[in-house]
Computed example of a mutant assay.
Amino acid sequence: MRYKSLLTLAASPNRIGPALAAAAGLARSFDAHLDALAVGVDRTQVGYSYVGSGAVMLQMALDRAEEEARRTEAALKAALVAEGPELRWGLESAVTQLGALSELVAMRARYADLVVLAKPYGKGVGPEDEAILEAAMFEGMAPVLVVPENSAALTGRFRHIVLAWNQSREALVAAKQALPFLTAAERVTITVIDPAAHGPERSDPGGLLCQFLVRHGVKAEVAVLARTLPRVSDVLVRQCLDSNADLLVMGAYGHSRFREAILGGATRNMLEAAELPVFMAH
């Protein structure tokens, strides 16, 4: 299994650097085609406008979104050209309202093996960045590689990968969809945090997954950790730092997205804290 069709999206000309560089590096490594989409987002909330001003405000917001899409497209094109002639790529731009963004992203993501995006939380990040990430995973049914601002160009070969395992469907989907990365890694640590005392894997946490991965040629081992910090994400961050991992693989949004948004969760907390690339699938 190899990734042959990659996708990256940007909603601002100021946020294309890490994701574009990472996607281009992976495309060259896997001999894949890279598609890039520049998105201009109309963030108008018409319900809060004054009577009679709706049409004017809508047109102004649309003009701003179109200008933003043009500037983002120009920045993406310049970055793609700078990657050199050996990179195969395509570029499109689109304008949409925030409420229709999911449909636009999903339509592209469904036909990609992997979506590469910038970190959706932090300074200068808008609500559209999180919406793009969720749309790619949920409606687009694609795995997503999230790269932090300080990420260098990626080659597809990670030295040490931490794979978060909790026996959930989401974690299993992530493990299977990350196989191109896992098989190329020098070492993969299946990390189980506070396994259930009465669960189906109580006698051998992570054992069946390790067996499955080893049969695919993955150099896998299992680490069972106690929850010594307040949040699961804190333990994962510590594990990645202590073991010098350069990629984290995890299932995303085990709870409902509404509960994650209101209360937080391992997915959101991990993305906020992560200083290494994070591979997620749902």
Rank of each mutant, 00 (worst) to 15 (best):
Y3N: 07
L6P: 09
L6G: 12
L7C: 11
A10Y: 07
P13E: 09
A19V: 03
L20V: 09
L20A: 01
L20T: 10
A24V: 12
G25V: 08
S29C: 13
D31T: 15
D35M: 08
A36R: 04
L37K: 04
A38E: 06
V46T: 13
S49Q: 15
A55E: 15
V56R: 13
M57Y: 11
M60L: 15
A61W: 12
D63Y: 03
E67H: 07
E68N: 14
L76I: 06
A78F: 01
A82N: 08
L87W: 10
S93K: 11
T96A: 11
S102L: 10
L104Q: 06
M107L: 12
Y111L: 13
Y111P: 01
A112V: 09
A112C: 08
A118T: 07
Y121I: 01
Y121V: 07
K123D: 10
V125N: 02
G126I: 10
P127W: 02
E130N: 06
M137T: 08
E139D: 15
M141R: 14
V147K: 00
A152D: 08
A152N: 03
L154F: 08
G156E: 11
G156T: 13
G156W: 11
R157V: 15
H160G: 03
H160Q: 09
L163H: 00
Q167E: 12
A171L: 03
A175I: 02
P180M: 08
A185Y: 04
A185D: 04
V188I: 04
V188S: 02
I190E: 01
T191M: 02
V192E: 02
I193F: 03
D194C: 09
E201S: 05
L208K: 03
L209Q: 00
L213H: 01
G217T: 01
G217H: 02
R231E: 13
V232S: 00
V232I: 14
V237T: 07
V237I: 11
R238Q: 14
S243L: 11
L247S: 05
L247R: 01
G251Q: 05
A252F: 10
A252R: 00
A261Q: 06
A261P: 00
L263Y: 12
G264A: 08
G265I: 10
A266P: 05
E272K: 05
E275Y: 00
L276D: 00
V278R: 00
H282M: 14
